[in-house]
């Protein structure tokens, strides 16, 4: 089982738009909610009402600050869950076969009844996408909501990951990267979707859309946006201008100035 499928029929995954993510953590909590009640053991919490509370989460939102060479620092909210890598090192290291990548759709899963909780897959994952549940002793990771996306007990519109369904800003998109016409493939192409740590050769399926360029008005003189030209500096001049303008205004108020 721990050998990776040579090719998967579909490549299901997420596109996360860093230009739009406001860092609200909605996806974090809906993921926790869905996956506590569904797939496998509940996501447990240790000392939930005490000091150092510590629980299992399959999706977490980081906040980074990026300082360009010149200009203002930028803040980027950065959600991260399993990227369902094509060349998933977490799968091949697993001694029990509990970790596997589905040949149907490329989803990387842990079969909890086989997992011995050795933690090696988490060591092998460069992204910190796996967490060992402290109560259950088994490895937990994003399931891409495999129990939602095909779930016939859910209305068709709801057959998408919990985090995507809930994201208020619409910063998360779900789809099949094997299909060049899918929403995720198109977004990736249009917006330059990128891989995280491409140098490690994991070939992540999930893509991140980079933030659009910011703070254009802080740079040098921008010829495309000239300042306004004054019509009058003084109140009297302004009122004189007003008179002239008003005499030109049409009477029925349906046109643009």
């Amino acid at each position: 089982m721990t050998s990776l499928p040579e090719k998967t029929e579909k490549k299901l995954g997420l596109v996360i738009d860093l230009d739009t993510c406001v860092g609200c953590h909605a996806c974090v909590i809906s993921c926790k909610g869905w996956n506590t009640e569904n797939y496998g053991a509940p996501l447990s919490d240790q000392r939930p009402y005490g000091t150092d509370p510590m629980g299992t989460f399959l999706n977490r939102v980081h906040s980074y600050e990026v300082q360009p060479d010149s200009g203002q620092a930028q803040t980027v909210h950065f959600p991260k869950s399993c990227l369902h890598c094509e060349d998933a090192p977490c799968v091949t290291v697993c001694p029990t076969g509990a970790s596997y990548k589905r040949s149907e759709d490329g989803i990387v899963l842990v079969n909890e009844t086989d997992c011995i909780g050795c933690g090696l897959c988490a060591w092998a994952c460069p992204y910190g996408a796996r967490e060992l549940d402290q109560a259950e002793g088994v490895m937990k990771k994003c399931t891409l909501c495999v129990d939602r996306i095909y779930n016939e007990n859910l209305p068709e519109v709801d057959r998408e990951p919990a985090c995507v369904r809930t994201c208020p800003a619409g910063a998360r998109h779900f789809g099949d990267f094997a299909d060049p016409e899918s929403n995720v493939s198109k977004l990736t192409a249009e917006r330059g979707g990128m891989d995280l740590m491409p140098e490690l050769g994991t070939k992540p399926v999930n893509k991140y859309l980079p933030p659009r360029p910011k703070d254009a008005w802080d740079g040098e003189e921008d010829i495309l946006a000239p300042f306004l030209t004054p019509v009058a500096e003084e109140p009297s001049g302004f009122l004189g201008w007003l008179d002239k303008q008003l005499s030109r205004l049409p009477g029925d108020g349906k046109t643009d100035s």
Binding site: L18, Y64, V66, Q67, P68, D69, A73, Q74, V76, F78, M194, D195, L196, M197, Y208, P210, P211
Partner: peptide
């Protein structure tokens, strides 16, 4: 790791 290096 973040892909944000092109910004700064």
């Amino acid at each position: 790791a973040t892909g944000l290096g092109s910004i700064g």
